[in-house]
């Protein structure tokens, strides 16, 4: 189970004055069950890249292979691919349209031609996975809070039982607690359902806390592809391409520069705490 991107290229409006290379020679292997953070400044190609994963956009060069099958093969079932690779766009709550929460989540499975029982089961299960309480199931989606709406929208994609879940900035506009709640739920779904998760985010702190691998995009190319520790060690290069490392990474480097020897390969508050305490105990001895 994997997605392979092979020399993927995408050019907007080829042959016109507006021609622009959005993706250039992307080679990536996305393994089964990975939790990946995809970062890059606005216009770096992140969104274009994820739209290739389920065939919404067709590459102008190179190939995409899902579980070994070429998705550009004329006989390939793209409709099925789109149930396997679920895309949650930015501000997905703008796409809610049904009269009740339940009906909105049922919409996807209904279009798969499942039995009414299976449709119900999937909808209830998906709503439970994102933590929507039972009493909201018959409410109008438009009566919910921003964070709740977003979770209903994510449930709509989960009800399709995807093998890969791609989320484009799922926490934009949410308050800090709302961000944590959504990401905790996504992590739980990742752990329990063993699905692959690709998280597009502008929050380096969030990415560092949750993912095992970070892919950094810049000018349509992959600039870094490594563990959070290794990627954020390049914090100076990241700044040059409009990104940054988590604040605690900077704090550890600053300590180091002031002659206080600590581990600098930290990316979360917890890791930083342990690094400083280790140094602190060293001085006490």
């Amino acid at each position: 189970m994997s997605i392979i991107l092979d020399k993927l290229n995408y050019v907007y409006s080829p042959g016109t004055a507006y021609e622009k290379q959005a993706l250039g020679d992307i080679d990536l292997v996305i393994g089964d069950g990975e939790f990946i953070g995809l970062i890059g400044h606005t216009g770096s190609g992140k969104s274009t890249l994820i739209q290739h994963l389920n065939g919404l956009v067709k590459a102008t060069g190179g190939g995409v292979y899902y579980n070994g099958a070429d998705i550009y093969d004329p006989d390939y079932n793209l409709k099925e691919l789109r149930t396997k690779v679920g895309l949650v766009f930015q501000y997905p709550e703008h796409q809610l349209f049904e009269t009740t929460v339940l009906r909105d989540v049922q919409f996807g499975p209904k279009n798969l031609g499942l039995t009414p029982l299976e449709i119900d089961l999937r909808a209830y299960e998906a709503l439970k996975q994102v933590g929507i309480p039972d009493e909201l199931i018959d409410a109008s989606p438009f009566e919910l809070s921003g964070g709740q709406k977003r979770r209903v929208a994510i449930a709509g994609v989960l009800a399709m039982k995807p093998e890969v879940l791609v989320l484009d900035e799922p926490t934009a506009g949410l308050d800090p607690k709302g961000r944590d709640e959504i990401l905790d739920q996504i992590e739980k779904i990742h752990d329990e359902q063993h699905i692959t998760v690709i998280l597009v985010s502008h929050s380096m702190e969030d990415v560092a806390k949750y993912v095992g691998r970070i892919i950094v995009m810049n000018h349509g190319r992959v600039a870094f592809d490594d563990t959070p520790e290794n990627v954020f060690a390049h914090y100076k290069e990241l700044e040059k391409i409009g990104l940054a490392a988590p604040q605690v990474t900077y704090a550890m480097h600053a300590l180091q520069e002031h002659g206080i020897s600590v581990r600098t390969d930290v990316t979360t508050v917890e890791e930083a705490k342990n690094a400083v305490l280790a140094a602190f105990r060293g001085w006490q001895r």
Partner: peptide, 17 residues
């Protein structure tokens, strides 16, 4: 439902420790 900057949280956690 609010948060603090990471370095503020780190200092708070270190103080508790």
């Amino acid at each position: 439902r609010m948060d603090v900057p990471q370095v503020t949280e780190l200092s708070y956690e270190l103080k508790r420790a």
